[in-house]
Nucleic acid binder design. Structure first.
Lengths: 177, 177
DNA sequence: GTCTATACACCGATAGAC
DNA sequence: GTCTATCGGTGTATAGAC
């Protein structure tokens, strides 16, 4: 699926990879759709775990940016997005995961964001996080296409904002100095 | 392709739509791939035309945002993106169109952006335009999935920034007053 | 669990009649 | 230009032997 698109994810192609007959797929999964759903869930669960870990780190906002901008498989995410276009179940699950991950990020970051954001009426936690997320997503998509122009500048812009919103923590040693 | 994904774009499905036999596709296009490429080019050429028109308007930055955030077919764009994952020709053309459209926008907007941007070292024209573009793209993708949480807030954030960067033009009548 | 055998539909593409 | 006929290949899925 990653290499050749969701159209290439067939019972025969799966079976060939593991050196078995294609009929075995229907023994473990009832239909090909079930296999796709299971794959999608495993993929998303891994991402959610990474996200949770990032949000627990010392600089969660920076970590959120890093996790968003460096997903394990940008091309795979695109493939699932297309699948969602015409698979109702995938679409529903993807929407649910998306909302959940955003809620998780907002809940754990809104406290510190509200304190430091300029123009709090405009720069709400949700808006800030979505902006970060959007830029990360586009950079990922671009990269998998082979586009990289403007990435350095956009990355600098994001990281400049991040430093404002979440300054480097001062260690006790530095405080003494 | 829009309704059921690129996997459903077959010579037979195309022929059925126009009430002819599927073999005709190979008369007009040599292969199915050629048809896909031609469709992609027509799609992108339309978008480029819309973009050019927007950049010629009175408030080009606002128009750029509107064009980016309201593409004719968000789902179709996603489908082409997936196609690009495993079709080298589509990938190359998409990259070229992407770079071209960004260059076009930067060239026609960098003049006025450089004048008004705060922290010009960070808020370069390219970075600003890519940020706008990124948020527009994600809102489009979200919408086609059925996600809309956070959109109002992000839209307000973008439009607040846009008003700062490109204030409403003052008409001669208003100037008199 | 893994296999063989098989049904049935659909795909891209070509050849050749009209 | 549009058609009929046809090829070989691949897809999902089921039945049943071992």
């Amino acid at each position: 699926m990653l290499e050749q698109g969701y159209g290439a994810l067939t019972s025969r192609s799966v079976a060939e990879r593991i050196g078995l007959r294609h009929q075995l797929v229907y023994y473990y999964f009832q239909t090909m759709d079930d296999l796709v759903i299971a794959t999608f869930r495993r993929h998303m669960d891994r991402f959610m775990q990474r996200l949770e870990d990032a949000l627990k780190s010392e600089r969660p906002l920076h970590a959120y940016w890093e996790v968003s901008a460096n997903p394990p498989h940008g091309a795979l995410a695109k493939e699932f997005m297309s699948l969602a276009n015409h698979n109702e179940q995938i679409r529903g699950e993807m929407a649910a995961y998306g909302e959940r991950s955003r809620r998780l990020a907002v809940e754990s970051l809104s406290g510190r964001l509200q304190k430091v954001a300029p123009e709090p009426e405009v720069f709400t936690p949700y808006a800030i996080l979505m902006a970060i997320n959007s830029m990360a997503l586009v950079m990922t998509f671009d990269s998998s296409l082979g586009i990289s122009s403007g990435h350095v500048e956009m990355r600098q812009l994001v990281e400049w904002c991040l430093r404002r919103l979440e300054p480097e923590p001062v260690s006790p040693v530095q405080q003494l100095a």
